[in-house]
Nucleic acid binder design. Structure first.
Lengths: 205, 205
DNA sequence: ACTATATTTCAACAAGTGTTGACAATTGCA
DNA sequence: TGCAATTGTCAACACTTGTTGAAATATAGT
């Protein structure tokens, strides 16, 4: 998980450059961050950035690699699944390194195709399957994934990128619960019919 | 609502420039769209763009003015309120001019502060009050507004900006309903306790 | 100390940006 | 037709961008 501290001198400045880039990309997006900005923050010459990573695009690619490592949801109740999903995403967002990577992708994706492409790949390859497994043979897996993605993306965008007051005002500890309550009805509706609670609320036997 | 067609020649090219800018801003964002791009699409000289609007920033401001004109929700049931809200937003998104304006803001806001600021102003001034009115004296108006904003922003981002397959795959006619089902439980939870349906589902008298 | 390698600095490039002011063309009015 | 105002064109400015290659410095091995 955590990188071991680099030994050789070049590896150390290489790491400084990567750290600076990750932070700046997250704060301002890829296109709004210049190679010179990165170099200044890493306290080195702009030419070194290119020398060590080949190009700005390659630096972006190197700095944004990550795995959501979503938990398995198959067989859980909607409430439990919503809790795990919400807690997992909040943990990713509030952890510095993974948070910066996620913010970089979200912030850049709107006018930087490689970022958008990576986000699409992450959702198709990691989120979609987990939701489909939860829904079982329910034909509505597509709709459910769409709704889950909306909520997750919406919270992340509003809180970390747009900084909308209603979302920034929420304390981090309350965040998982708030997301879970939005997610639970969505997940409940995604289950196959015979597993659904009846509308009049009669508890299942 | 619709502008009357311009009479003088300068007003006509001014309108061509505004149209071109609105479309390009929506497609690529403000910063990724150059004055020369706009001029090319409007079939005029780049200098004219500045002449007629003063600066690129001023052109952005002029082209992005709009009013959500949200319906009043006070006193509605959660289901009805969710339906109206969802239908209203979808109509905005799927109408060319307002859709382009919304996309411009959303796409640019991630690395263009004026866009972010305008989005925040729209939510604080237009969405928040409508939700607060619906919630009545419920103390949870803030949370409810946060959740509503998440869903709305998330759908718009995923469908129109990131183009995530699960969201782009939904037919426009099905979209309002899909959003409404996400919104309804959120709005229901935002009502003051004495108006809430009991957990065991007993219908109110 | 001298050499060879690793690391960094510097100056410059070509391309693209928003913006400006001087000039040319077109239009409408007398 | 001639004059004046409106509208459009052109070339250039100052600046920033990613990237490059040669030169300078620092580090380590003998």
């Amino acid at each position: 998980m955590t990188e071991s501290p680099p030994t050789t001198r070049s590896a150390r400045t290489r790491a400084r450059i990567a750290d600076a880039a990750r932070a700046l990309f997250a704060e301002a997006g890829v296109t709004a961050t210049s190679v010179r900005d990165i170099a200044e923050r890493a306290e080195c010459d702009p030419a070194l950035v290119i020398r060590y990573f080949g190009s700005k695009e390659a630096l972006f690619t190197a700095v944004v690699q990550f795995d959501l490592m979503l938990p398995e949801l198959r067989g859980l109740t909607p409430g439990a699944a919503a809790e795990r999903l919400a807690g997992h995403f909040v943990r990713i967002w509030e952890t510095r390194e993974s948070g910066e990577k996620f913010q970089t992708l979200l912030r850049s994706a709107t006018s930087h195709e490689p970022s958008a492409e990576r986000l699409r790949a992450v959702f198709a390859g990691q989120v979609q399957p987990v939701i489909a497994a939860f829904c079982g043979e329910g034909a509505s897996a597509g709709d459910t994934a769409a709704k889950v993605a909306s909520v997750v993306l919406g919270v992340a965008l509003g809180r970390y990128i747009l900084r909308l007051p209603p979302l920034t005002g929420i304390a981090p500890e309350r965040l998982p619960d708030l997301i879970a309550t939005s997610l639970e009805p969505i997940l409940a509706a995604g289950l196959p019919a015979r597993l659904q609670p009846r509308e009049d609320g009669d508890p299942s036997p």
